[in-house]
């Protein structure tokens, strides 16, 4: 049985449709990320799961039990807030204990759970401090700890890393994932940061305009984006439209584009149709090949170099480990048919 079952969920605010007919199953112990641009409905969905918003239609169940109308204080979920939402007048220990006291957990149990979580999160020495005496990363940990001591069936994260600096974000990301796996927690994580989503998740739900665009593992989502929106939103993508011209016997299809003929091994439903193709910048193989372009911009990024090429009034992007290339140079490259993905129309 799925840990969370969402059925035909819709939510509208004064005529604005924030979510429409949203259905999804989340498995026990799964780390699921809701990814999308601002206003795509991901936070609305999280608020509905945590109980702070009631859906207009549809239902939600946790562990098979319908909780659609259950208020947040009676739900077996715990939310980690973007702002941490630590109680400023309570010290770390009191913050951690707060939820357990509300649920009238016995003192022994409370002490045991708090000390276990504090040890796990490295907070033992901070217990007597007030939140404003802690760094952002430590506050984040307290917020996570406050949710963990509750031992919820589902833990919800609302962009928890957005207030941290880049280095700390990487570190806390690993910690959250480790703890989620250690406790086998079912987690729903909201973010607009695609690299966070790719690095942490078992599965990613890409949302746009209140609808699911694609649900897949990070690897699949990156390698096989279904639509232009997903391709563009996750990682860098070169998008090009063309006309299908022939199908060869090795299941390869040739598409006529402004770049020239591009071959793809991905299936195209109907022949002689306009299609949109996508290939990832790091998949281009520089050297011999049918395609060429002039470097108009170069950005050294450390582990790779970003090259912006221009050809036939088209701009595309290539990433290479080789930092020799300079602006003005003309380079030739090829793309393997496996790396060229055929996109479905958006919407």
């Amino acid at each position: 049985m799925a840990a969370i079952g969402i059925r035909n969920l819709s939510k509208s605010f004064d005529g604005f449709q924030a979510l429409s007919k949203f259905s999804l199953d989340v498995q026990q112990g799964e780390f699921l990320t809701l990814l999308g641009p601002s206003g795509c409905g991901k936070t609305t969905l999280l608020k509905i799961i945590s109980g702070f918003l009631e859906p207009s239609t549809g239902s939600i169940s946790i562990g098979g039990e319908d909780i659609t109308r259950v208020p947040p204080e009676n739900r077996d979920t715990a939310l980690c807030f973007q702002s941490y939402a630590l109680f400023p007048h309570l010290n770390v220990l009191q913050n951690l204990e707060f939820g357990l006291k509300q649920k009238r957990v016995s003192r022994d149990q409370r002490d045991a759970r708090v000390s276990e979580v504090a040890a796990k999160l490295g907070l033992e020495t901070q217990l007597s401090k007030l939140p404003n005496q802690l760094s952002g990363g430590q506050q984040q940990r307290v917020s996570l700890g406050r949710a963990l001591v509750m031992r919820p069936s589902v833990i919800l994260f609302d962009e928890p890393l957005s207030n941290l600096d880049a280095k700390l974000r990487d570190q806390v990301r690993v910690e959250i994932r480790r703890i989620q796996q250690d406790y086998s927690l079912t987690a729903i994580y909201v973010t607009h940061d695609q690299s966070e989503a790719l690095a942490m998740s078992d599965r990613i739900v890409v949302l746009n305009d209140g609808k699911i665009v694609q649900v897949d593992t990070p690897e699949q989502l990156y390698a096989q984006p279904k639509t232009r929106f997903v391709a563009d939103f996750i990682g860098g993508a070169n998008l090009i439209t063309g006309r299908v011209c022939s199908q060869t016997k090795e299941n390869l299809t040739s598409v006529e584009t402004l770049m020239g003929q591009i071959q793809t091994s991905h299936r195209i439903n109907k022949s002689s149709e306009n299609v949109e193709l996508c290939w990832r910048p790091e998949r281009a193989q520089i050297g011999k090949g049918p395609y060429c372009g002039t470097i108009v911009h170069r950005a050294f990024q450390g582990q790779f170099t970003d090259l912006i090429l221009e050809e036939n009034d088209m701009i595309f992007r290539i990433q290479t480990n080789n930092d020799r290339f300079r602006v003005g140079e003309v380079i030739t490259f090829s793309i393997l048919p496996d790396d060229v993905v055929v996109l479905e129309a958006d919407g």
């Binding site: 208020p71 204080e73 009676n74 702002s83 707060f98 509300q102 406050r146 509750m150």
Partner: peptide, 13 residues
């Protein structure tokens, strides 16, 4: 702060 109210509620207050 609304998030403090929500956090308290979320923790069963």
């Amino acid at each position: 702060r609304q998030d403090h109210i929500d956090a308290a509620r979320d923790l069963g207050a």
